[in-house]
Each structure stands twice: as C-alpha cells, then as structure tokens.
Design a protein around this nucleic acid. Structure first.
Length: 518
RNA sequence: GGGUCGCUAGCUCAGCGGUAGAGCACUCGGCUUUUAACCGAUUGGUCCUGAGUUCGAAUCUCAGGCGACCCA
C-alpha cells in the first residue's frame, strides 16, 4: 500500500544526494502559463521563439520517449507543455550531465517543479517551454487521482478538497467565482456608503432567527455561550447608535441537519438602511444581485441546472396570499378560525401539522407545500403573517400581516427582508409570545433580549433590513446543485481512518526526513 | 428521523456462492513530436467493520460505520 510512497521517498533521497533537496526554498517564475499562452498565440507550429521564460507548477502528465519527453505543467492559471530534449538539456546544464535522466526518472506526476527555457510550438500545435534547466520545488509523496477520470468519488472530493482543486478546473472556477461574488458585493455596498462592522460570533443569548444554536463555554468567565444564528440584533443596535447604513458579511452557525441546501455553518450578508422600508430593500436586492451576477457571469441571464434564469430587474412581486390562492384555490383571507383553514387544507390534500396553530401559520404551510418549489424565476413573496415574523413591522394596511418579503429563485429562499419593527412595546410583546412558544416545546422559537429592547427604547430610526444567503446565491451563479459544492470544506462526519499509521509513525522516529539529508 | 443506492489495488471500475480481475498509475526494458503516447514484462488486496448461514462468502442474511440522492 505504501509502496508508491516509498518509491517517491527514495527519489527524494536521491535528489538530496545529488545536492538538490526535494523541498526548494524559492523559485522566481517570469510568467504564468495563461499569460504565455495568450502572448504567444501567434507562434506558428514547429517554430521557436527565443524568449527566456521561467515557470513553476505541478506536473500533471508525463510522456517520456527515449531521448525526448513531454510533461504538462500546470500553475494556477492553467497548463503548459514542457518540451524536454536530452541533447538540449545536456548542453544547457553542463553541471549535471544526466539532467535528462534525472528529470525523467526523479520527477513524478504530482511534483511541483520550476523550469527555465525558451518557447516552441510543436508540430501538433502545442505551445511548449523548451526546457534548458529544471529544479525540484516540492516532491509529492502521494500520487494524483486518475488523470482521465479525475476524482469521481464525491465524498473524497469534499474530504480532500485539495485533490479536487488540483484535478478539477470546474471546482477551481467555482471558488474563484465565489470570491468574485463576495468582493463585488462588498464593493457595491461600500460604494453606496454602507459600512461593514463586525459583530460578535460568541453570544450569551442567541437571537435574530428561528434556529437552534451551537453551545460552547468560556472557561475564564465560566460562561455558557452560543454561536450566533444571525447578525440581526447587533446590526440593529448599530443603527440605533447612529450608523445609518451598515452591513456584515460573515459566518452564521445553526445547529441543524445537513442537506444539499444546508450546511451548519454558512455565510450571510445582512444589510440595514435607516429611513428605508421593505420596498426600498426590494429595489436594493434586485440591483445588488443583478450587479453581482453581471460581474461574476458577464450577464444577468444565466443557466442553472439546465433552466434559464433571468435576473434582469425588475423581478416578479406577489403576495403570499395570492400565490397560495393561485396554487390551491384557497383564499386564506376568508378563514375566521384555524380549524376552518385546517379543514379546507385537508380537503385539498394538504398536510396540517399540529405546530401550525393559527391561520397564518397554516398559510405558510400551504405556501411551503404548494408554491415554494415552483418559484423558479426570481420572485419577491410579500406580506407574511405576523406569527412567523417577530422582528418585522406590522403591515401599514393589512391587519395580521407584516411588511416582509422573501426572495425565491429556483425554488429556494435566497433573501429575507423587513420593514424593521422599531416599536419597543410591540417588539416586547412579540418576543414574549415567542418565549411562550419556546416554553411550550418549540426549540427554534426566539427569546426576549432585554438589552436589544432597551436599545429600541433609546430609539431606532425607521429602517429596512435585508439578509441574503451567500452560499445559495453562489450555487446559482456557479450552476452548483449542492451547497457543498460552493463551500471549500463542508461539514462531514470524521472519517474513521488511520489515526496511527505504523509506517509513518515509525519513519518519524527512526529516520531523518529527506530534507535533512542534503 | 424514514427510504433507495454505494463502499473491491494509489485512481476509475468489473466480478454477485467455487483460485481476487481489467484499464490507468507505479517498477523494469525499448522508443526524438507526444498530448488518455505507444510496445513488452512485472508489481500491487483487511473485497468498509463485525457476527451469522454454508463444505466453501467479495458475493447470501443480520447489525454497525461512512457517503450520495430522495422524502419529512
């Protein structure tokens, strides 16, 4: 099993004996490969160009034939071919008469090397570095995955993301796009005078969302703490403090299951704008997401899992009541009691969970069962029941509802926004109602945060607030079917494997490492 | 939480009750225009773990582990 590894260790020792350690200190590339490919696209087949180049990267493939060899070397920007001639190397590296043999026998696929040379486009049209010198930068002890099939094992792709990144250009592109999306979003907000302020991850009281927190403990203060489930309540305190436009883009933790749409830690951006309401936040959401999409994908029309999605504003707006009525025929404005609504739902074949104890909660149930999954194109769903939205302001004209929207794209909740509730008396009643639900057994219900209520009593301006799920947005922009495809290291159960590897342990006790042998 | 499927060589997979297999990779030999190079010869295994059925288990049964997908 460790025979491949032992072979490579032996090669590392040989390199050390030749005076070239298997782990170089540094190398100075003159170019990255994509820049070379672009700059010399005009070089005709079979021609050489006498420019001195030095490139560094990982050896991806090797083809050795007698006194000539072709390697593929890949740096972050992509691959370039190495054209390696025995005669050329012998002439250019007089200090090592066996340079060709050393290069072809001591360098394996997976090693990181640096080469110097000139350019040549082969007869078959492949731009190549005609190698006049080489050095080992890092000797790899483990082989690369199958060069043709790549890493087909999904579990291994997540567990050993470094291998996935080496062999899968698509995976590299996904994380490049994720970085682009996040920086485009920050730039857009910064340009509009939004200030990013970091708020605590460790909190003595979780709040701002209906979710179970992770629990931890501070030793010195002997204090139980939870990881934040939202940034909402602290960002609102900042608005009370006078910051009129604030946001935070960061990690949120929810102690929930894992699925293609859920990871226990995920990234959100919450944005608060004083003197604005939820209609302003709808406009902001459209503009922001369309901008990010344009920056990342070059268009606001994209394809997601074979479906065309058009993110060009304006987006469809519809109330939850209207959407439910369209899908089920049920008019929830007409029900005067929970039981009446429940009976009507059952007559239409909808499920009626016991926890849904009001007309409003049943409306949300009907929405989730019959509407949500079909909202493919971007849709703002407006005006939620007050029972499910304890931090949103009462609707200006519709009793029992709040000024809230959620944005759905490809059937997934992607953003959530309110005209924020700024009335401290109303807020206290709402949170106390939540606390009662919690006491009754709903462990996702919220609690009363006295300091937050005190902040509201100091006075919070009318404010629009918005939260966007970054991971789900990036899934959309990278055509990724699972949230794990857009999180570099998603949560997985630890693998029961080789806690003690006899050969590795014995080696570190008995043998000096190859680097120490030079 | 429930269901379905998967786990065999470093990688990708076949084998489905009767000697553990292929391609690639590795090692050795040959080869100056290859690009999944090619030709020849080797090497490589806790068939996820444990128990059971059987003369005999990678294969059948049960339990467990890890994962994927679907449902709640």
């Amino acid at each position: 099993m460790s025979e491949l590894r032992e072979t490579r260790l032996e090669k590392a020792r040989t390199l050390a004996a030749l005076g070239q350690g298997p782990y170089a200190l540094r190398f100075e590339p003159t170019h990255r490969t994509a820049a070379l490919q672009q700059a010399h696209a005009d070089l005709p087949n079979g021609q050489e160009r006498d420019v001195a180049v030095a490139v560094a990267g990982r050896v991806m493939t090797r083809r050795v034939m007698g006194k000539l060899a072709f390697f593929t070397l890949a740096d972050e920007t992509g691959p370039i071919q190495l054209f390696i001639e025995k005669a050329t190397l012998a002439a250019s590296m007089p200090e090592d008469p066996d340079a060709f043999a050393h290069l072809t026998s001591l360098v394996d696929a997976g090693d990181l090397i640096g080469v110097r040379g000139t350019l040549r486009r082969t007869d078959r049209g492949e731009l190549s570095v005609k190698v006049t010198g080489w050095s080992m930068l890092t000797k790899a002890l483990q082989p690369l995955p199958d060069k043709w099939h790549g890493l087909a094992d999904v579990e291994k792709r997540y567990r050993q993301r470094y291998l996935d990144l080496i062999v899968s250009p698509d995976t590299r592109e996904t994380f490049r796009r994720r970085a682009l999306a996040v920086s485009a979003m920050r730039r857009w907000l910064d340009e509009r005078d939004f200030l990013e302020i970091e708020t605590p991850v460790l909190q003595s009281q979780p709040g701002g969302a209906d979710a179970r927190p992770f629990e931890t403990h501070h030793n010195a203060l002997d204090l139980p703490l939870t990881l934040r489930i939202a940034t909402e309540l602290h960002l609102k305190r900042l608005v009370v403090g006078g910051f009129e436009r604030v946001y935070e883009l960061g990690r949120i933790f929810r102690n929930e299951g894992v699925s293609t749409r859920h990871n226990p830690e995920f990234t959100s951006v919450e944005i608060y704008q004083a003197y604005a309401d939820y209609t302003d936040m709808m406009a902001l959401t459209e503009q922001l997401i369309a901008h990010v999409c344009q920056q990342v994908c070059g268009s606001t029309r994209i394809s997601y899992q074979g479906t065309e999605i058009d993110l060009t504003p304006p987006w469809r707006r519809a109330t939850m009541h209207a959407l439910v009525q369209d899908a089920t025929g049920l008019d929830f404005t007409g029900f005067s009691s929970r039981d009446e609504a429940a009976a009507a739902m059952q007559a239409k074949g909808l499920e009626v969970p016991a926890l849904a104890d009001s007309v409003g909660r049943l409306l949300v149930e009907a929405f989730e069962q019959r509407v949500e999954a079909d909202l493919i194109q971007p849709t703002f769903v407006l005006d939620y029941p007050v029972e499910n939205s304890p931090l949103a302001r009462a609707h200006r004209s519709k009793p029992g509802l709040v000024e809230r929207f959620e944005l759905f794209i490809v059937g997934r909740e992607t953003a959530n926004a309110f005209s924020e509730l700024i009335d401290p008396v109303d807020q206290r009643q709402r949170l106390e109602a939540q606390q009662e639900r919690k006491a009754a057994g709903d462990d996702e219900a919220q609690t009363v945060d006295e300091d937050f209520l005190h902040a509201l009593e100091v006075g919070m301006p009318p404010t629009g607030g918005l939260g966007i799920g970054i991971d789900r947005l990036v899934m959309l922009l990278t055509d990724s079917p699972s949230i794990r495809d857009v999180i570099a290291f998603p949560l997985l159960r630890p693998e029961a494997r080789m806690e003690s590897r006899p050969e590795a342990a014995a080696e570190s006790r008995q043998e000096p490492r190859p680097a120490a042998m030079g």
